[in-house]
């Protein structure tokens, strides 16, 4: 699967707001919003490195094929 076909997606109701994805995102794509949940704030900056997906303890953020959604 090519990187450009991947899209950053979230499962908001599973997020517990720990902030690990926000802290280790190399391009600062993510924020924790006022509801203590992750929000994709700057999607254009995403380099699709999967570091958020790999370290999300709650499976609440992930990259998948865009056409699939």
């Amino acid at each position: 699967m090519k990187r450009e076909d991947l899209q950053l997606l979230q499962k908001r109701e599973w997020c517990k707001g720990c902030g690990i994805c926000v802290a280790f995102c190399p391009t600062k794509v993510l924020i924790i919003d006022t509801d203590d949940k992750v929000t994709i704030a700057n999607e254009d900056a995403c380099i699709k490195c999967r570091q958020c997906e790999q370290r999300c303890p709650d499976y609440a953020i992930f990259l998948e094929e865009a056409s699939d959604v």
């Binding site: 997606l9 499962k11 908001r12 599973w14 997906e53 499976y59 992930f62 998948e64 959604v69």
Partner: peptide
Amino acid sequence: MRSSQLVE
């Protein structure tokens, strides 16, 4: 909202 395929 769905979850990732791996998780599914």
